[in-house]
């Protein structure tokens, strides 16, 4: 209830502005330790780049992976990694909500006139993931050179990146809420979030049909890159699913964010009513 009223009293633009103000201060704070910050960004880019290298090495042994060529897999990889990088940057400290409960920082935030989720997401905001985003953008750009671009495909690509970020954002928030129930459930949550993200780096055709099903209907990360990339590549669905699914990323994104907000609200309500 309280959260809903808060949303009303402050416009969406006000929220974005507030998020930017808080995040901006964290970026300035990080800039105090420039060397450390730059090292982190570069290291993050290099480490996540190893995934891309792994795919490239794989293709030195084969021509097709699950029926997809290197540039096609690179497109899938780039799109997924971009979405993950964006979400990872936006959620800030949501993953550490359990720690915030233990240290009392969450209580402190509850005494500020802003929605709690906004505060937690903006807290400890870091541009460390710029490394991942840059690296993903480079791979995506290279792969995009092979795409036969039409205005519709450009539109789908833009929507894909935004929806991808939103889907991962929703996933992170939803699974972080487990920490309202039990402390230190981070590992369990990571299995779904980062685990799901890793699966999407490959064409789903290399997995059993059940994986495709659960990534479509349970943890909808297939909409981050798989379906929209099939559209960009002008391919029919290898599993024989209808073509309109390829345009459903925004629907999945809205649903995922909706689930996340509801779960978050339930989590906060549980916290304020149990104090643990």
């Amino acid at each position: 209830m309280a959260e809903i009223q808060a949303e009303d009293s402050l416009s969406a633009r006000g929220h974005v502005g507030m998020y930017a103000a808080i995040a901006g201060l964290w970026v300035r704070a990080a800039w105090v330790y420039r060397t450390s910050f730059v090292t982190l960004v570069v290291a993050n880019g290099l480490i996540t780049g190893l995934d891309a290298v792994a795919i490239w090495i794989m293709f030195s042994q084969l021509d097709l992976l699950g029926g997809f060529a290197l540039h096609e897999v690179a497109l899938l990889y780039g799109a997924s990694s971009l979405g993950l990088g964006i979400a990872d940057t936006l959620i800030g400290s949501v993953e550490r909500i359990g720690e915030y409960i233990r240290t009392g920082r969450l209580d402190q935030m509850l005494t500020k006139p802003l929605p709690l989720l906004l505060q937690v997401c903006a807290d400890q905001f870091t541009l460390r993931r710029l490394g991942r985003i840059t690296q993903a953008a480079v791979v995506f750009a290279w792969a995009a050179a092979y795409v036969d671009w039409t205005p519709a495909r450009v539109g789908v690509a833009v929507v894909m990146v935004v929806s991808g970020g939103a889907i991962f954002f929703g996933l992170f928030v939803t699974f972080s809420c487990i920490q309202f129930l039990t402390k230190d459930a981070t590992e369990f949550a990571n299995a779904f979030t980062y685990g799901g993200a890793t699966l999407t780096q490959y064409p789903l055709t290399i997995f059993p049909r059940e994986v495709m099903r659960s990534l479509t209907f349970v943890v909808p990360v297939a909409f981050v890159n798989w379906y929209p990339c099939l559209y960009l590549l002008g391919r029919d669905d290898p599993f024989g699913l209808p073509g309109w699914l390829q345009l459903c990323s925004p629907v999945a994104a809205v649903a995922m964010v909706g689930v996340a907000l509801l779960t978050w609200r339930a989590g906060v309500r549980r916290y304020t009513s149990t104090g643990s």
Binding site: A2, V32, Q108, T111, P113, P115, T272
Partner: peptide
């Protein structure tokens, strides 16, 4: 208080002695 949390937050100030809300590095 809990129902009107955000509205109340504008009208009260809270200081927890052992925790700071200030930006450490700034």
């Amino acid at each position: 208080p809990q129902r009107d949390r955000v509205e109340l937050a504008r009208r009260i100030g809270v200081v927890f002695g052992q925790r700071t809300t200030l930006w450490w590095d700034l």
